[in-house]
Design a protein around this nucleic acid. Structure first.
Lengths: 164, 164
DNA sequence: TGTAAACAAGATAAGCATATCCTAATATCT
DNA sequence: AGATATTAGGATATGCTTATCTTGTTTACA
């Protein structure tokens, strides 16, 4: 239905909605938890940041986070930025002139279904998605992946590779 | 929603359902009436013939025609052959394990809408599409395009190009 | 029997989505 | 200030859909 980019985005945003709103989350953490290609997910997140749905922070302790409260971002908001949602509005049969007045044979059918779908997407927020995932058995959690690493430094040699 | 190929197919098949069932119709006629790229439409029709929805006849007086009665071919039958309809069954959020038991946050919403859509496609036949078009003002008709050309031969020179 | 008409099939190409990698910019920590 | 971690952005590659063109194959008709 949606592009793979939108699917990745929805899954990542759902996870972001599950942790503390202020926390910066790494692309790598999200990719690992959701088992998605890191670099491609990075592109998607960059895109969402440009569109104002995410905020990004470069450098150490950086990452991505929601630009607004989870209950204020709808599924439709997300999909609209990544997919061409206008495609849903176009004629199912690809006719150039198909409107309420001059309808193609499938127009009313498609319009009914599409409108119901869009309304649902508009009334479903990231908070809803997150809440659903909370109650789902076996759904991993972000903080569980990297539970605030205690900044361990293994006395790493600077550059002289000592083999073992 | 559908691929462009499916859209082209639906429009072409609707026209085929509007003329006498036995008549062979040319790709060129369909393309001209529907204003579609001839060669590409040809590929789509070839495909449908291979899948058993159309019959094709080579040579003079050849063309394409429906392989079954228009009331026995559903929109779903057509789309299924050209698009990967299984994509409708897969999770909207792209999750690997999303079923009735282990549902993603959008599963029940999507399932309801998708099922209603598929059922509608399965209960709409080419006859229905054709009947709708009949009553539509300004919808061209195939027989009107080439009303059985009277086999006119303009005494064409064999190979010597005579300029004007 | 030959020729023209028409679909069949293959090669080719553009455009987009997906995916990866590399370098640059930037923020933090020491 | 310098080293390091992290996103940003550009270049590149692959595969699918759409589209066109060319050539082959089949059929009907003269």
């Amino acid at each position: 239905m949606f592009s793979q980019a939108s699917e990745y985005a929805l899954r990542a945003l759902t996870e972001l909605a599950r942790c503390e709103p202020e926390k910066w989350v790494l692309t790598g953490e999200l990719a690992e938890l959701l088992e998605l290609p890191v670099h491609y997910l990075g592109k998607v997140l960059q895109n969402l940041a440009r569109k104002g749905i995410l905020e990004s922070q470069r450098g150490r302790q950086g990452g991505f986070r929601l630009a607004a409260a989870a209950e204020e971002i709808t599924v439709f908001d997300v999909v609209r930025e990544l997919d061409d949602v206008r495609a849903l509005e176009t004629c199912v049969m690809g006719e150039a002139s198909c409107s309420d007045e001059t309808a193609c044979p499938l127009h009313s059918l498609w319009k009914g279904i599409r409108d119901r779908f869009v309304k649902s997407l508009q009334s479903t927020t990231l908070k809803d998605l997150a809440a659903f995932q909370e109650q789902r058995p076996g759904s991993g959690r972000l903080s569980a992946v990297h539970p605030r690493l205690p900044q361990f430094r293994p006395a790493k040699p600077r550059r002289g590779s000592q083999g073992t």
